[in-house]
Design a protein around this nucleic acid. Structure first.
Lengths: 244, 244
DNA sequence: CGGTCTGTTGAAGGATTTCAACACTCGTGG
DNA sequence: CCACGAGTGTTGAAATCCTTCAACAGACCG
């Protein structure tokens, strides 16, 4: 197989070995939620989870569907997005393994407020919201961890609100590149490569701008030698220059 | 005392009677956090809280200060805001009695990520973050309530991100007026009056725009008869017309 | 090898900011 | 009680940022 791809991104290697039940236990232990539990407790909790695979671009759930599960990314990446009435896509977050999404709410007539889409081939575990709530009742340290993680996400959201409110598009794009670089960056010959397929449209959806403007801004960054970028990938060469 | 004020806003009546220890217990019971506790448990929890008064515009804590307390608004209103380096103010939220703010984090080198300011004369109760965490450990239902409330706030933040990303300033202002009307609105002869002092600058800080633009937009709404507004106050006459 | 999706770039038009001047409200002190 | 000043709100006009429309180039897929 000659690799004719131009992208420097690693191919996803979800071979079916990487998300089996045996591995899952280790993975659970690594999620911040459950780091306080011992092996026995973990096994008990693990029984309530079920595993699912999603292909790249597959929809995991859609905004408006009734929300009954809390999910954790085990392998791959997940995009959380909102669709507006006039067809725009707002990209709220990109999750990596260990992060949760879906619903914490007790079962009711709650609906998902966003759409979740596999960004690469992905493995996700899910648990019924009510079951998860009883886990929280049983293990208070887990509940505290959930509070902490959710509170931290709230802070990030507020950071983003600040940026959208007070910064220019160029500054926002620069900040997003830095954040992505810290979260998903891997050193490579091209600089710090963001190990995820990211289109100009994705970037636009994160920065609250149009794909064209995002493209223009990346072009200027590239001219300045700050980044290197191609179809669906971005590498950062001079992070200093992206600082506000 | 002839009242020459032009504002239709009610004067705040924090006479010292409204936030005493006896009343506090009732107030605690009404906060969503503690609705699951019985009176005995409430009394136990209440011991750990202390009460503080703030005058209108007084700073409760400042962005960057070390964060050690979780607080709950008992009487009055509190603004949460972030200051940007170039002097702009982003208004993240306006809280009413029963809502929490401050830090849930365990004591450490955590800092407040926003500034809290009294919007009217205000009474606030506060608890050491570590004490609060042990309350959460002791009473799992309280922890679940905290999770729910924080998750709901996260959703509101994401809603706001969507609005800032995909809507025009006029649409954003319209949405903010509706939200404020639902949260703080009181029927009056002038329409649904937002019972809080809100300046054009405040509104601009919420909508991510300039005070001038906010003023212009309110002017057009007023010409259309949708709202009535004056110095530091706004009343909504035709909420239907503000819908997107 | 064509078709489709993604990315680039130009140019016109629109939305919003900024600068500036002025009016009005409210509290304070003479 | 009135006058003053600071803070708040309004409005105009120019400048700027950004979007939109449009055309085209390159990359990937079957």
């Amino acid at each position: 197989m000659t690799d004719k791809r131009h992208t420097p991104l690693a191919t996803s290697d979800l071979t079916g070995q990487s998300c089996t039940t045996e591995v899952l236990l280790d993975k659970l232990k690594m999620t911040p939620f459950f780091s306080f539990l011992n092996n026995e407790q973990l096994k008990e909790v693990q029984k309530k989870f079920s595993t699912k695979y999603f292909q790249r671009d597959e929809i995991i759930y859609r905004q408006g569907e009734s929300a009954a599960f809390m999910r954790i990314v085990v392998h791959g990446g997940v995009k959380l997005l909102r669709n507006t009435m006039d067809g725009k896509e707002v990209l709220l977050d990109m999750l990596k393994p260990g992060e949760y999404f879906g619903s914490l709410q007790a079962l009711g007539d709650k609906e998902y407020t966003e759409t979740a889409q596999a960004q690469t081939d992905t493995c996700v575990i899910s648990i019924d919201s009510n079951d998860f709530r009883s886990v929280l009742q049983t293990y208070p340290p887990v509940a505290l961890a959930v509070v902490d993680i959710t509170a931290k996400r709230l802070q990030h959201s507020q950071e983003k609100i600040q940026q959208l409110s007070a910064q220019t598009v160029k500054e926002r794009v620069a900040n997003i590149l830095l954040t992505l670089s810290e979260k998903f960056g891997e050193d490579s010959t091209k600089g710090t490569l963001i190990q995820l397929p990211i289109s100009r449209k994705d970037l636009a959806g994160m920065a609250g701008t149009s794909a064209e403007t995002a493209s223009r801004i990346l072009s200027t960054f590239q001219e300045e030698g700050v980044i290197t970028s191609g179809r669906q990938w971005i590498a950062i060469n001079k992070p200093e220059e992206l600082q506000v």
